[in-house]
Design a protein around this nucleic acid. Structure first.
Lengths: 200, 200
DNA sequence: ATTAATAATATGACCGGTCGTTTATTTATT
DNA sequence: AATAAATAAACGACCGGTCATATTATTAAT
């Protein structure tokens, strides 16, 4: 039984994190109660603290759990041999836009939403947000640097500055998308930067 | 006495809105209780609903109350006769950056924070955010159009698209500012767009 | 001008519900 | 039998919102 139990425990943890991602994105950190998360994955309330130290700690883990797949996906696109780096970045964002449309523009990006809601007040989550953003930004920057070497992206601007601008404009566009219930802002964002400003 | 009373009432309303702006910026919508706002301006709990229909309605008014001064300020800069429109926009954002630094990067922009937190879930506030953003965007767009006529900003891109990009990148940079506790992101944002991408 | 009756407003106590967290007890493992 | 893990119940605090009462303003009658 001990084997099956510890597998179940890991499964519960994973379910809690997944549900935390989904609910925090749509309803925010303070707008989502632990009860709601626990109910959704059928874990008793008293058990929560067997998995996580506090809601704060849980939030910090949810943030990392959220960004991981994005890093994997962008990384995968960049390491594909059949296209250049700029095209990989283009395709990555195009994929995201399709998913946002399928989601009917609800929620946007967990990092952006939480940076605004608790970025200034919750130290634990702030640290987690900082590291998540940095990991993501560094990867995007390396992709842009590769594109510079390939000659598809201008080289008179640093890849760091362009990565930051792309991330920031993308985040802002996601916010606009939520209140305008349209993918126009995110599409325009990619168009302006990837098809014009960054072009060599 | 009737005169003094109604003046006091307007004053209370104004104080509540001001305090709402301050607390919603720093702690978010769900992170701020009505009690906290009421205590700060010494208005009894029961009186809140003499001023506003609900927390939702209050939030929607806070949003408009927040953006108004920004519109006035940008408008003032743009109508100054001593400089061109691009310079007016530059100076406007430079002023904002100074204030953000004085605030030690806490809070950022109420519109950005609330779009992420409740933009998808609270219809009343979503409407208010939509109109606030539009008012602000239209003004910025008219400023950029003026700069195009003056020949300081490129004309092969529409002023609408540039206004959106500037607002979105600025919002994203404000989010980054909050977690990195630095004005570097917002400075870089203005530098990249106003001093390079938008240049004629 | 003063008073009495009426309407409007202001407010503190309180509502049911939910928050994140703790703890005493039960259940399972060694 | 001893130890560890899981959990239901309960904790105090706070949430947004309501309501009976108290206070104040307005009107009408004297």
């Amino acid at each position: 039984m001990c084997m099956a139990k510890s597998i179940q425990k890991e499964l519960n943890r994973e379910n809690l994190l997944n549900q935390g991602v989904a609910l925090f994105i749509e309803q925010g950190y303070h707008g989502t109660g632990l009860q709601e998360i626990l109910d959704a994955v059928s874990v008793p309330k008293g058990s929560f603290y067997n998995y996580f130290g506090s809601k704060e700690d849980f939030g910090a883990e949810v943030i990392q759990h959220y960004i991981d797949p994005f890093i994997v996906r962008l990384s995968t696109h960049l390491s594909k041999a059949d296209t250049d780096a700029l095209n990989a970045i283009r395709r990555y964002f195009d994929e995201l836009i399709v998913e946002l449309e399928n989601n009917q523009f609800k929620g946007g990006c967990l990092l952006g939403n939480l940076m605004g809601e608790i970025g200034s007040t919750n130290d634990v989550c702030q640290q987690s947000l900082q590291s998540a953003i940095r990991r993501y930004r560094d990867l995007l920057q390396s992709g842009l640097a590769k594109a510079q070497q390939q000659g598809t992206v201008r080289s008179d601007k640093s890849s760091e500055a362009m990565a930051d601008l792309l991330i920031n404009a993308w985040q802002g566009a996601l916010l606009r998308m939520q209140i305008e219930k349209s993918s126009a802002p995110v599409k325009q964002c990619c168009q302006d930067l990837l098809e014009d400003y960054f072009k060599a």
